[in-house]
């Protein structure tokens, strides 16, 4: 079981991820607001963050940078509906484990989370 933070400006997407990962026994904390998610991370343990790239006020990459400052060992999976080479390269350089294009398949999401938590994933891999 892991403490997982999910941030997506579309609430349904965040809820879906929570449902999928909760079924796998993880404790999932969902957010649609960046500041709320960062505030939570500042006061609680976070092992894995699943972040949408396109948020309301900040970008997912910026949030990842802030979270990494708080939890340097934290794993991260980036999600986007419109992948670009620039955001992918930036996310990987900040320590993201995965860079996935939405809509991601349920099974694929479960597998990536599993891999990220086990630390078996290859750092810097892109999955565009």
């Amino acid at each position: 079981m892991a403490e997982i933070l999910v941030l997506d400006d579309v609430l349904d997407a965040a809820v879906l991820i929570e449902k999928i990962l909760a079924k796998k026994g993880h404790k999932v904390h969902t957010f649609t607001e960046e500041e709320e998610a960062l505030a939570f991370a500042g006061s609680a343990a976070v092992e894995l963050a699943v972040l949408d790239i396109k948020l309301q006020k900040m970008s997912g990459v910026q949030v990842l940078a802030r979270l990494k400052e708080i939890h340097p060992e934290m794993h991260a999976i980036m999600l986007t509906g419109f992948p670009t080479v620039e955001t992918a390269r930036e996310a990987i350089s900040l320590g993201a484990d995965e860079y996935c294009v939405k809509p991601i398949d349920r099974q694929e999401l479960e597998d990536k989370v599993e891999r990220a938590l086990k630390g078996k994933n290859r750092k810097g891999a892109l999955n565009i």
Partner: peptide, 21 residues
């Protein structure tokens, strides 16, 4: 096309994931 892809992706993800659940 990019805007459409981006805007649709999250609702689509929610719908597809929910259907799969």
């Amino acid at each position: 096309a990019g805007a459409v892809a981006h805007e649709i992706s999250s609702p689509l993800f929610a719908a597809l994931g929910s259907a799969q659940l």
